[in-house]
Structures are given as C-alpha cells and as structure tokens.
Design a protein around this nucleic acid. Structure first.
Length: 626
DNA sequence: ACACGGCGC
DNA sequence: TATCCGCGCCGTGTA
C-alpha cells in the first residue's frame, strides 16, 4: 500500500467492495431514485488520466476512483514506460468497472466531469448519473473567482497542497503542446498516488461544497440546470461540426493574394516597408512619418484602431487600405488558418470545447477553437461561415431568441410599457423610437429606429450619454436627452436599475432569475471609476445571466424532446442566444417546430419568449422558416 | 506576460 | 482630468 498526501492507494482488487451496495431509495414504481444529498460513502469520485486535454486526440492511460475520504484506487491501463508493470487490459477493466460506472444508483463525482465523461464515452463506456462536478460547484458558488482548478479548490477548501501535473514530468520528456501531457510515459508508481489524490480531493470537496450550495440557495441552479448540462455539452463537443476543408483552403489562398496586393500598395504609399501587423510601427508611419493627426492615445502609442482609421480615411488614401488589410489578415490568420488546424482529419469536423465555468455571468464560452465568434457581419466574413456545412443529405436549422436581453429586462423590471411592447409583438426598436421621440410609429425613420436600437442595447450595458454620443455621432447633450426621454417613458426600468444597485450595495452581490450569483466587491469602492463599473455590472449581470439561464434550460429540454420524438437531429453549437442543429432533410420541419416550442417554454416569464427559426445548406446562407 | 486590435453576442 | 458598454477568445508584436 502506497501513501501520498494522506491518501491510501489500494491495489485494484480492493476497491470494489465499498461501492458494491450503494444505498438508494425506491420510488412507488420500484425504480431507484437518486438520493440528492450525498452521504459519505455513497458518491464515487472518478478521475481519468489521459495523454491530453483534447478529447479526440487523448488516449486513456488510467482511471482513479475514491469511494470514501482518504481511500482511492488507481487502475492503470495505458502506461507505456520501459518497466511498466503488467496492466489490466482495458476491455477487462471496463468489464469489471462498467456495472459500477454505468449504474445510475452510484452517484458520480468528479472535477470537470465533462472531460472524464467524454473520454470514457469515446471508449464506449457511458458514465451514468453525473451527480456532482466540483468545478461546476465552485463556479456556482463564485463564478468570478480566479480559478476553478482542482488544485485551487483543494488548497482553499481542504487546506491541501496538491502535486501539479508538471512535477510528474521527468526532465528530458517534452510536452508537445500545453494541451498534451505524456501521462503514458509516467511510471505507474508515480501516476497512481497523483491520480488517487485527485479522486480523493474531489470526493472530499463534495462534502465541503454541497452544504455551501445549500446555504447560498444554489441547490436548484446546480442540480437542475448546471449538472444536467454537463452531459449535453459533452455530446455537442464530441459531435463537432463539419467543415468544407478544400473550400476553406482555397478561400485562404484568395485572401492571401489580396493581402499581398494590399501590402504592396501600402508600402508604396507609405514610402517604406514595415510590419503592418505591428500597431507600434503603424503608429509611427501614420502619425510621425505621414504627419496625420492622432485621434486617441493608448497606453504606449497613438491608437490605430478601426475607428481612428475610418476617420483618417477622409483625409488620406492609406487608412482605407489599412482597414482592408486588417480585415483580411484577421480572417486569414484567426478564422482560416486557426480553424484548419483544428479540423479532425478522421471526419472533417471541428470539435470546440465549451467552458461551463468560464464567465462571470453564467454564459458559456467556447475555445480551441472558439466557435462563438465566427464572422457574420461582413461579406468576406460570411464566406468563412459558408465553410461550415451539415452532413451530406442533412441541413442546418438554427433558432435564436429574439431580443432576449430586452425581454429579460422587461420581466425583471416589470416595466409596464416594455412588457406591453413585447406582449403586442412587433418591432421593439421601432416602438422605442416612437415612444422616446413622441411620434407615431409609422413616422419613424430608419435613422430614428437605429438610434432607438442603440439606446436599447446601451441600456442593458449601462451605457452613459458620452458612450451613446460617440456611437451615434451626436452631441453629448442630444444623447443625454435621448436617455432622459427613454427613462421617462420606461420609468420602471429606471426604478429597477436603482433597486438592483441598492441591493448590490446592501448584499455585495446580485442574482439572476434562476438564482445564479455574482459578487460585486467593488460596489462600495471609494474609487468612483471602480464603483461605476460595479454598478454597470450590477444591472447587466442579472440580464445577461438570466438570458444564459434560459438558453441553458432550453438546451436541457431539447435533447429529451429529440429522444422522445425519435429524431436523429444533433445540437451542434450554442452562441449565447442562438442554437445550431444539423438534421436529415426529412426531419427538418419537425425539428424546427420542436426546438421553437422548447425554447419558448424553457422558463416561465412575464413576457413571451420568441425563438426565430432559420434553415440552410451552410452556416452562412440561413433563410428564415415561414 | 502584456498590450493592442478585432471577431461574436 | 480621463473615462464613459457588458461578456468572451485569439493572433500578433513587443519586451
């Protein structure tokens, strides 16, 4: 028996006993009901060791489990060191483990369970009852804390200093990338205590964090919203989205030749060669060599951002070319080269990673690659989107929540006018314009509607007169009047903003509709700028966070509905208020109806939720349904 | 490691 | 006097 970090490490034959007879309650129909409040010895912490963090590239190396504090076992299956002991065959290990791991009465505990679930899924073993993810629990308890890593949590909540992965690596072995770790090259004797400590800590954190969730009224958010989402996000990631690789590569070549042509023109006009991608060098060329008037300063140089360049293009021919160059090089490097690198050669699909513990508001984030910021606004950008395609014979269906933030604001504030506007349906920006400018709706010009749109967005972010004036190119006073008029017409919104700020000051936190919490320690700061920032956050977070709650609720309901209607459609991507599916052509209409219904009824609100549907043969050419 | 700039909602 | 719109991820250059 080894001992590290106070964990007893058992050889693989001993671990089964304590979890063979998990206790469960029987409901009336005799089916086991999962017990919500875990007792020591009921939950089983599971942690897989692999050769990397990217699911479709990682190989399983071992599994550790802990069934009671201080007890854990490690089952090595894939160590490839020179003197590795004879290991249990993966198939044999799974045969023995699956009655436990696939038993829904055994509550699985893990840290970032989505990863362990995904890896085991790829191996053909489907973990049942993902009960408690300590990373997600930490996120619910305090979403904006700096790190939700197991090591961070163990140090804070268990007062335990854990060995870091890097410390296992003998000198001489190189990591291929930060996403890779050659765990298969680590001796079993070193890996076992490490892996067991992880499982042990995870189980002990459950005992610590679960009561804290209860105390902060986060129980339902955690068990009913966040935990059910884990498996769904895993499914989306593993499915991935198909790209037309030859198309993207050809597009990349076209962009590249445009970039080179622009470069030549830029150097000619500038009278010198320089690195256009360097804002420092560009700043020199524009403002010192060509003596153009600087508009704004950054910390180090004069700003050369898009707004500045657009202004300068009125007086010089160079800035226009620079804007073009910027757009093209952004598209080429981030969205062509970046995406192409991430394509899985086996299926031509891209598997993003959805981070469920990454934002302060409750939104998801996406990385490696980020599929939540694929271009859509410019013509060239849409050419990139066009490279995302459904399976042959299938189509894309998308559904996005119409004006979800403003609807949430109407619900939270209870403002009668805003609520009325949504109950009546129609164009909310146009209605706002008519109200704020005291004119009949049919007299509203596109320009006026545009201003109202800017106000509507600005309100949600706590934008002030200065910001609005900048955005609309109007005077500070005009902006002030518009905002004043808005709050006159929607007085309930103003009252709510004051109320939420007051609450934030009194409590030190704000909450969303489903009880998600965000602490705002700066809300009582003596520093005015910091306080203002916290105040804007105080009003924005309940809105943005409630929208996130709502779409998460929909994402949990939709797969259930797909199953019960025997649809083979796949949910692929979430972009904050938007869901993208691929579906066999014949099923498209049925899917669209189902998705719309589930999204619009995801959460009961005082204002209607509306989801708009689109269908298309690629991610760019999506056309409205009916 | 950080700053800048830019893509999305 | 500077700032003034919330939340992300990522490529590139610079130090």
């Amino acid at each position: 028996m080894n001992s590290t970090d106070g964990v007893k490490v058992y050889p693989p034959n001993d671990w089964m006993v304590p979890v063979m007879n998990p206790s469960y309650e029987e409901s009336a129909d005799g089916k086991p009901t999962v017990i919500r409040h875990p007792r020591v010895g009921l939950g089983l912490a599971v942690d897989v060791e692999t050769t990397g963090l990217q699911i479709h590239r990682a190989e399983l190396v071992g599994i550790s489990m802990s069934w009671k504090p201080g007890r854990a076992a490690y089952i090595p299956v894939g160590h490839r060191t020179l003197h590795a002991p004879k290991q249990i065959k993966k198939e044999d290990a799974f045969k023995t483990l699956s009655p436990i791991l696939q038993n829904p009465a055994v509550e699985k505990v893990g840290h970032n369970l989505k990863f362990d679930f995904s890896i085991l899924c790829e191996e053909g073993l489907v973990l049942k009852n993902l009960y408690f993810d300590t990373m997600i629990a930490s996120y619910c308890l305090d979403p904006s804390r700096p790190g939700h890593g197991l090591k961070d949590l163990a140090s804070q909540y268990l007062n335990r200093n854990m060995t870091r992965l890097e410390e296992l690596l003998p000198k001489g072995i190189q990591r291929a990338s930060p996403y890779d770790f050659p765990m298969d090259q680590i001796e079993v004797e070193k890996a076992a205590p490490y892996a067991c400590a992880d499982a042990d800590c995870t189980l002990q954190l459950l005992e610590k964090l679960n009561p804290m969730l209860e105390e902060k009224d986060l129980h339902s958010l955690f068990y009913d919203l966040e935990m059910p989402l884990v498996e769904i996000l895993s499914e989306m990631e593993r499915t991935g989205i198909k790209v037309d690789l030859p198309y993207l590569q050809k597009l990349g070549e076209e962009f590249q030749s445009e970039i080179l042509a622009l470069e030549r023109q830029i150097f000619k006009i500038a009278g010198q060669e320089f690195n256009i991608n360097s804002s420092k060098q560009l700043s020199f060329v524009l403002f010192e060599k060509l003596k153009l008037p600087p508009q704004r300063k950054t910390k180090t140089d004069y700003s050369t951002d898009d707004e500045v360049l657009r202004f300068l293009s009125a007086s010089h021919e160079l800035p226009k070319l620079l804007i073009e160059h910027r757009e093209l090089s952004k598209l080429k490097s981030t969205f062509i080269d970046g995406l192409v690198e991430e394509v899985n050669p086996k299926n031509s699909r891209i598997h993003t990673s959805f981070n469920q513990a990454g934002t302060a508001t409750g939104r998801l984030s996406s990385s490696d690659p980020n599929l939540q910021n694929i271009p859509i606004r410019t013509e060239r950008g849409r050419k990139i989107r066009k490279g995302f395609v459904p399976e042959a014979g299938w189509v894309f269906v998308s559904a996005d929540y119409s004006q979800i933030d403003l609807r949430v604001l109407a619900h939270l504030s209870g403002d009668p006018e805003l609520r009325k506007a949504f109950h009546q349906g129609g164009d909310i920006h146009l209605a706002t314009a008519a109200k704020v400018l005291h004119i009949p709706p049919e007299k509203v010009t596109p320009e006026q509607r545009n201003r109202a749109k800017a106000i509507n967005f600005g309100i949600v972010y706590g934008q002030q007169a200065f910001g609005l004036s900048q955005q609309l190119g109007i005077s500070n006073q005009e902006a002030q009047e518009l905002i004043g008029s808005y709050f006159e017409k929607y007085a309930g919104v103003k009252v709510w903003i004051e109320k939420i700020k007051k609450e934030a000051r009194a409590n030190g936190f704000v909450k969303t509709l489903l009880g998600r919490i965000r602490y705002l320690p700066e809300i009582n700061s003596k520093n005015g700028a910091m306080r203002s920032f916290a105040e804007r956050t105080a009003m924005n977070t309940p809105v943005q966070g409630t929208s996130a709650d709502i779409i998460k609720a929909a994402m949990i309901k939709i797969p259930k509905a797909l199953k019960s209607h025997a649809l083979s459609a796949r949910m692929l991507i979430q972009v904050h208020d938007d869901l993208l599916f691929e579906v066999p052509k014949a099923e498209a209409e049925k899917l669209a109806r189902l998705v719309k219904h589930e999204m619009e009824t995801a959460v009961a609100m005082d204002v209607p939720l509306v989801a708009d549907l689109k269908i298309g043969k690629n991610w760019s050419e999506m056309v409205p349904v009916k």
